[in-house]
């Protein structure tokens, strides 16, 4: 997910339970992509020590941080995250 220019939701999303993670994963048609996602989920969970939350449509984000630009704009974003693109 890029970037600084795109408006981001200011609210921190609620945690995904395991079932919701599976729902998003099940919507991926490509089996290899799903396996890759499981690996990335596992690694990001290990590094951040947090469970994934769903940002926007299908971005898995781990942990949050608060940012503030010199323009005064501020908000929250995930520290680590990834978005499985449809292959």
């Amino acid at each position: 997910m890029a970037t600084t220019k795109k408006p981001k939701p200011n609210e921190i999303p609620s945690a995904l339970d395991a079932n919701q993670v599976n729902v998003v994963l099940a919507s991926l048609e490509d089996e290899a992509l799903r396996v890759d996602c499981l690996v990335i989920l596992d690694r990001m969970r290990g590094i951040s020590g947090h469970e994934p939350k769903l940002w926007n449509v299908a971005t898995f984000g781990f942990d949050t941080y608060h940012y503030k630009y010199e323009s005064g704009r501020e908000g929250d974003c995930h520290v680590l995250g990834f978005h499985p693109r449809k292959a």
């Binding site: 990001m44 520290v79 680590l80």
Partner: peptide, 13 residues
């Protein structure tokens, strides 16, 4: 890379 990135953002935070 993920570890570096995570540590960097958390320290700035």
């Amino acid at each position: 890379i993920l570890q570096q990135s995570y540590d960097h953002i958390k320290s700035r935070d």
